[in-house]
Design a protein around this nucleic acid. Structure first.
Lengths: 87, 87
DNA sequence: TTGACAGGCAAGTAGTCACTTGCCTATGCT
DNA sequence: AGCATAGGCAAGTGACTACTTGCCTGTCAA
């Protein structure tokens, strides 16, 4: 999961899903290009989504020929739990 | 900072500093070897500490020929703030 | 059924990263 | 002064990773 967060493009994908959950691959591609200037191939984004899915940060729902991607921020909690700030 | 968290050794260093704050380089080296079986060179650990320091996760205090390393978990908070879980 | 659309598989490549090796600086003890 | 200790600098290497290219599969509408 930490490796998944290491890449700026993947973090931007999470940002996009935060703003608009349940996007498809093509939808993400166009929005990443339009709003964030990320000019990557569809396969690149697809591979990033695979990584995010493997990290448990993105959940997927198939419907016909569409595949919707949903953000799951739950795994992020273990970060602040692992290294609690002594205030 | 996310890249700093991507490496298992660096995360273990943070664990070590969580358990015992203010360790020196050599102290960290021996404890990483003893308790976690991390058999890396001093330079490797030193470079990891540089990365953690650059990420703002570790603060440093020099005293004579010793250099003490302190954990700073504050930057971690922006993670859960950036992608809040909609419960 | 044919073509357009959404997505997947797999190999190759360039760049990055972790780690080592070798040498150097600085502080403290005797 | 002399030596051991604590740490730093820098170049080289092997592995990993992000990205591309090319082709293939599955779904829906006309």
């Amino acid at each position: 999961m930490f490796k998944a967060l290491a890449d700026p493009t993947r973090r931007t994908i999470l940002d996009e899903l935060t703003e608009r959950d349940g996007q498809t691959l093509f939808e993400l591609c166009t929005r990443l290009l339009m709003k964030h200037g990320i000019d990557s191939t569809r396969q690149a984004i697809s591979q990033h989504l695979e990584g995010l899915e493997a990290a448990g940060l993105v959940r997927v729902k198939r419907e016909g020929r569409y595949k919707f991607h949903y953000l799951d921020g739950a795994p992020l909690k273990q970060i602040t739990e692992r290294w609690p700030s002594r205030d």
